[in-house]
Simulated assay, not measured.
Amino acid sequence: MKDDSISYATKFTESGFIFAPFNIEEKAILFQADKADYITEKLNSISELALKNDFYSDESSKEKHIKIVEKAIDLISENELQKVVISRKELVEIASFDVLEIYLKLLQTYANAFVYVWFHPKVGLWFGATPETLLQIESTAFKTMSLAGTQVANETENIVWKSKELEEQQLVTDFIKNQLNGIATDLKIDKTETIKAGNLLHLRTKVIGVLNKNANLKTLIRALHPTPAVCGLPREIATGFINKNESYNREFYTGFLGELNIKNSNTKSINSNLFVNLRCMKIEGNVASIYVGGGITKDSIAKKEWEETVSKSKTMKRVL
């Protein structure tokens, strides 16, 4: 940016790079297109980082996470919730770091993800590598996806998804379909497939459609964000449970980011490419805050949900 002032996207008619928090009541930060400098660089090589990793992951944080998950499972058993996503923040001490080298490692490790490094002097430094598209839209034609279910990739075994992950994925797909009812036409839902992101596998279902005349980009974003993949169902009850029980501010984790209303130089159309901010971390001084979470359903087992967050945290620790 050409100065350190903070701009916001309020109507979603603005143009630039957006960085939006999980909480829809908080403002989405915007790097305005007409105030930004654009730099293109060819990245070829990567060197090893000499970093010391000291993990502040003690038994108390494990017990706390398991208790929250157990509380969520109880609420689901009482039919108050269908699903809720419980997350936590893990702190990693780093002796030193180089922004470009970490970014290069993310690019190399997560070839199929949207990889970013984002900095604002008044907000902070964030890195991420997310496999989940919130929305891609050109004119009125859009693409989105449901992404849920996680398991560690194992090249020697056939991929088998259990009922818990399959149900979780179907809940997200059904939510998107219902949310788009009335604001989109020509809706098409692809078959569910398995994708790989780093050392993890996920279930993904692609959805395409056309925005109708009574809706706009802001309407579409508000319909989709936050999805059950990062929040839960029903959305309002899940959000309340998260805010009451997680006891920390997610900030931009499980928010969304990307290009907002950028003109395509070839087609002259206006495009937006937005991604859910998963697999991310914030750097403050010599400490990296790594954010991880998992979807809780009636079939969840609290200790296994903890183990899943441990596996997910490794995806970001690998670049430190």
Rank of each mutant, 00 (worst) to 15 (best):
K188H: 14
K268M: 13
I183S: 11
I270N: 12
T227Q: 02
T254I: 00
K263F: 12
L233V: 04
I183R: 07
K218E: 15
P234R: 06
V230M: 04
I176R: 00
L260G: 07
T185G: 08
E246L: 10
L233A: 07
N214Y: 11
F241C: 06
N243E: 14
F252G: 06
R204T: 02
N199H: 14
K213Q: 12
T194A: 09
L171E: 08
N271L: 13
K213C: 10
T205I: 05
I159G: 11
K268W: 09
T173L: 01
K268F: 14
L233Y: 04
D190K: 14
I183N: 01
W161F: 15
G255F: 07
N199W: 04
A184E: 05
G240C: 09
N264L: 02
C231S: 05
K263R: 13
Y248N: 08
I195H: 03
G258H: 02
V230K: 11
K206E: 14
T173G: 02
D190A: 15
K196E: 13
N245K: 04
T254G: 02
E167D: 13
K177L: 06
T239R: 15
R235D: 08
L201C: 09
V172E: 00
K213D: 14
V160L: 14
Y253G: 07
G209M: 00
W161G: 03
L217T: 05
R250T: 08
A215R: 07
